[in-house]
Amino acid sequence: MATKKKTDWSKDVFKVLKKADVQQIAYVPDAGHTSLIKMAIADNAIKPVSLTSEQEGVAVLAGAWLGGEAGALLMQSSGVGNVINMLGMANECRFPLLMLVTMRGEWGEFNPWQVPMGQATESVLEASGVIVHRVDEPSEIAETVEAAAKLAFEGGRMVAVLIGQRVVGFKDWTK
């Protein structure tokens, strides 16, 4: 697992989020998002919101938009399975919604329990009317998030960037 590479894309993504004027970052912690979360916490202009369950994040960002702020929701692919009902609200009101999803249950997965949800993530999002951008190249993550942020905030859509497990690396069961 290339730790340096991981930090690099997080930095670039963070810059993109700042440029898109993201001020609320809601998250359920995930190893793949660790650096991004750290940067969000360290940045005084960003309000980090740690959630108990991912569905809370969709609602928080609806409120953020109502109050004039843009936000992003960071989660793992399993969390996608918790937000489907709440996405109905974002869909119906056409709230912009930017989600960055680190994938599990695919490339090199060690935990079989992650596989069903990981394999269903993309189709479930699409069934909910979310536009999905998938990225497997570290060098393409930042530009993908930038495009997704535009589509979300300017185009007024729900957009998810799925960051492949190949990029975030896979955990070692023995660690």
């Binding site: 919101v49 994040g57 609602a59 928080v60 409120g63 109502l66 109050g67 004039g68 709440m86 119906e92």
Partner: peptide
């Protein structure tokens, strides 16, 4: 909210943080 059951408090949180 006419839907999104379970989301009112969190919508309020996002709004309170923004305003």
């Amino acid at each position: 909210l006419w839907g999104g059951m379970g989301g009112a408090v969190l919508t309020g949180l996002g709004l309170a943080l923004a305003q």
